[in-house]
C-alpha cells in the first residue's frame, strides 16, 4: 500500500485525484502548504506526493527540492501549466515522476500508477538479478 500526500492551496483542486485514489483503495492525505507538507514528511513516511506548482508559501518546485533533501526516495509529481519542454527545463534533475495538468483527473491517476509499477518492476528485476548472483 502506498502512502500519498496531495499539496495544493485549495482542496478542491485535487478532489478528482482524491476520489480516484479512494476508488483504488489508496489513501491520499491533503495539506494546503509546503511548510505543512515538510512537517508531515518529518513525522510520517510518504511514498509519493503530488504538488501544485503554485503554493501559498513557496513554489511546488521549491517544495520538491526541500523534500528530496529530507528523503530522496520519496517520489513526486507536479501539477503545472508549463509546456512539456518548459516543464522539463524547470524541473530537470529533480527526478519528478511526471507532469500533471493543473486539475488532474482519474485518467492521470491510472497513468501514474502504471508508471510507478514500471519503476517497481525495474527495481524488482534488479533484486532478482542480485538474488541470482548471491
Amino acid at each position: 500500500m502506498i502512502n500519498i500526500l496531495l499539496v495544493s492551496p485549495e482542496k478542491s483542486t485535487f478532489k478528482e485525484l482524491e476520489t480516484a485514489f479512494q476508488e483504488k483503495k489508496i489513501t491520499a492525505k491533503w495539506t494546503d502548504s509546503a511548510q505543512n507538507a515538510l512537517l508531515m514528511f518529518s513525522k510520517e513516511k510518504f511514498d509519493l506526493f503530488i504538488t501544485h506548482e503554485h503554493l501559498t508559501d513557496m513554489t511546488g518546485r521549491e517544495l520538491i527540492e526541500k523534500a528530496l533533501v529530507k528523503n530522496a526516495m520519496m517520489n513526486s509529481v507536479a501539477a503545472s501549466t508549463l509546456s512539456h519542454d518548459d516543464f522539463h527545463k524547470a524541473y530537470e534533475g529533480l527526478g519528478v515522476l511526471m507532469q500533471f495538468p493543473p486539475a488532474p483527473g482519474k485518467e492521470h491517476v491510472q497513468n501514474l500508477l502504471n508508471h510507478l509499477n514500471r519503476i517497481t518492476l525495474i527495481a524488482g528485476q534488479q533484486d532478482k538479478s542480485r538474488g541470482e548472483q548471491d
Partner: peptide, 9 residues
C-alpha cells in the same frame, strides 16, 4: 538497469 523518467533511484 533501464532508465525511465523519475527512476533516478
Amino acid at each position: 538497469q533501464e532508465h525511465v523518467q523519475g527512476g533516478c533511484m
